[in-house]
Amino acid sequence: MHPLFLRGTSPTLRLGLLSVLSVALMFADARMNYLDNLRHYFYASVSPLYYAVGVPIQSAQTLAQSFSQRRLLLMENQHLRDQNLRLQVQHQRLSDLQDENKRLRHLLGAAPKFVEKMLIAEVMAVDLDPFSRKMVINRGDSDDVRLGLPVFDAQGVMGQVMELGSLTSMVMLITDPDHTLPVQIARTGLHTLAAGTGVEDVLELLYLPNTAEIRIGDEIVTSGLGERFPRGYPVGVITTFHSTIGKSYAEAKARPSALLDRNRDVLLIWPPRSSPTEASIPSDTPQ
């Protein structure tokens, strides 16, 4: 027999207590960093669920691929061969420049800053909230991934690792409204910040003086300040620029270079350990 009246704390009281708790959690999660550890712990314990969804789908896709047409494969192979040749030629020139740069830096007494380690990761076949600007990749703690690690694709910066599980991690894209990264206008060297807007292909540049010299089509690259992102990687291209005399700052928007929502393979790049001469800048991304 079921009891006619349910005993224990009344649901109303329980709802009240849990609502207060939830509001406190939300506030603490959004405004303070107290909960970061708690959140990372939760993430690590529930992230295997991503595997339960992602792995069957991914293996089905691989299976489908292995049956794909010979003609398509040949075409793709040819295309990749061409691309490889082009890249190798470019690389010859770059490695020469890199050597020269190293020599010059050595002469100046500055520590060389080159990338230490890279790893290719796959974006997992898992959907998050369609409105959010985040994704899950198949590398985690066991691959030496750590929080704040920058993520790239062939075209530019994608985002950084915000949650870490043992085999997966969650990446916050540069278009997320919580994300800001220090950038530079490549042509003029002007430093600024590129903040996400929540729209999938719009970045906003912050605190630009009204007199800033910016043209539509200017490329923006990471500036390396904040020490999260290595410097010199493409971030986006300026699409609009308005300076109004009455306002304190000029408004500029950019389109990200990376294909943020159409990628399967991404690249994790470990920034070189900062040398004592250049380590005085506080790291403050994301906000």
Partner: peptide, 13 residues
């Protein structure tokens, strides 16, 4: 909340 990357407590509430 944890899996979808939303604010902790949002779906919970």
């Amino acid at each position: 909340d944890v899996l979808l990357g939303s604010l902790l407590g949002q779906h919970a509430l």
